[in-house]
Amino acid sequence: MSRKEALSQFIQQIHGRPVVVKLNSGVDYRGVLACIDGYMNIALEQTEEYVNGQLKDKYGDAFIRGNNVLYISTQKRRN
């Protein structure tokens, strides 16, 4: 399996699931992955913003530009 295929499979697996999006600035956004495109632009639902591990704000929906994304990872489901 190529890297591109592996990435595509990962994205399919996490669609609709809780994720953590870490930005280059160090800020984390946690929410449910609604959409992601080839440029790593990300749409989240039920989004929470964390700065230095502290909850700073909550948003219904959020759009994150791909050039700001350091990484995206899965997280355990929220209660």
Results as ranks from 00 to 15, higher is better:
Q46F: 03
N68Q: 10
E5K: 13
S2T: 15
I42G: 08
T74F: 02
I14N: 03
N24S: 06
G60L: 02
L7D: 13
G53Y: 03
E5V: 13
A6M: 05
Y50F: 06
A62G: 05
V19G: 06
D28C: 06
R65F: 05
L55F: 01
G53T: 14
S8L: 11
G26D: 03
E48A: 11
F63V: 09
N68W: 03
A62I: 09
R77W: 02
C35M: 06
T47P: 00
Y29L: 07
M40F: 02
Y71P: 01
Y39E: 11
Q46E: 08
V20M: 09
M40A: 13
Q9L: 10
E45A: 14
K56E: 01
S8V: 09
S73M: 07
I64T: 04
Y71S: 13
G53N: 11
G60P: 00
E45V: 13
Y71Q: 09
Y39Q: 14
G66N: 12
H15Y: 07
R17D: 11
L44F: 04
I42V: 15
F10Y: 09
L70M: 11
M1E: 15
M1G: 15
Q46A: 13
I64Q: 02
V20K: 12
K22P: 00
G26M: 03
V19W: 01
D37I: 08
G60K: 03
V21Q: 08
R77A: 14
S73R: 12
S25P: 00
Y39K: 14
Y71R: 13
L55K: 11
Q9P: 00
R78L: 04
V21P: 01
A34M: 05
N52S: 10
S8D: 12
D61W: 02
Y50A: 08
R65H: 10
Q9C: 08
E48Y: 00
R17L: 11
T47I: 01
L44W: 02
S2K: 13
I11R: 08
I36Y: 01
F63A: 08
L33H: 06
N67Y: 07
K56Y: 00
I14C: 04
K4F: 04
A62L: 07
C35S: 12
D37N: 10
G66K: 11
N24I: 12
E49V: 14
S2C: 12
Q75F: 03
K56Q: 04
Q9N: 12
A43L: 10
G31W: 03
